[in-house]
Write a protein that binds this DNA or RNA. Sequence first.
DNA 1: CGGAATCCGCGCGGATACTG
DNA 2: CAGTATCCGCGCGGATTCCG
Lengths: 133, 133
Amino acid sequence: MPTQTAAQRRQVARIEYDAFLATCPSRQLVDRISDKWVTLVLPALADGPQRYSDLARRIAGVSQKMLTQTLRSLERDGLVTRQVTPSVPVRVDYELTPLGHDLMQLLSAIKHWAELHMDEVLEARATYDGAAR
Amino acid sequence: MPTQTAAQRRQVARIEYDAFLATCPSRQLVDRISDKWVTLVLPALADGPQRYSDLARRIAGVSQKMLTQTLRSLERDGLVTRQVTPSVPVRVDYELTPLGHDLMQLLSAIKHWAELHMDEVLEARATYDGAAR
DNA sequence: CGGAATCCGCGCGGATACTG
DNA sequence: CAGTATCCGCGCGGATTCCG
């Protein structure tokens, strides 16, 4: 008589498996990097320090919630610094750290690649969709 | 007497604004590239053609639904090709196109960067969390 | 100005079952 | 083996409101 049902054994296997994934360092960073807003915020900081409101305007389409959330996680990961100037009204500047500058260059390369090859992708989509119909 | 309430004007502005974003080509590709599974599938194809089941095993953690969905979108965008061998059982191989190979190199660079600097990020997180508490 | 807090819809994505 | 189809939870992220 089995002490576990098949469903229970599957459940246990899944948990151990997830634990293995959690301990894989690169996977954690890949998840963070492959974030919609991260890939837009970092290149936006390429030209030096930016104010919060400037970022919000440049990355048109982002809500303050997502912008703040993204900046906090980037600060936590040591990729950007947050500089508060206690004037009236308050002024907050964000700047890339050396580490963040490294990553920004990689993401900017992808952004540049996207702009270069967008037409080829659009063409491929048209062909694919046309053949299917 | 205004013909629109403030809420209505805001709504109109939002729609025109979204339309502008939709016509921005690079944004569409950035959205596609900054996909959790895309950044894992493309590097997995770096060593040449891979069978569906091989990919499922290498990218441990992906469901068939997500793997299939990701491969379909990559095929549609002209980044991978799908080769069906009608044997018994069926065999399906996926391979990078020249365009996909280009992008794969950029994503592999990011994956490599993540593996290299994961320790620094973990250290920054520990410092950040420690200071906050 | 630069957030924090709250509410909430809906779409991503996992689990399961079935097919050629 | 390589999918397709269906159900469904839950977390992402937008909208709104309030604060220092």
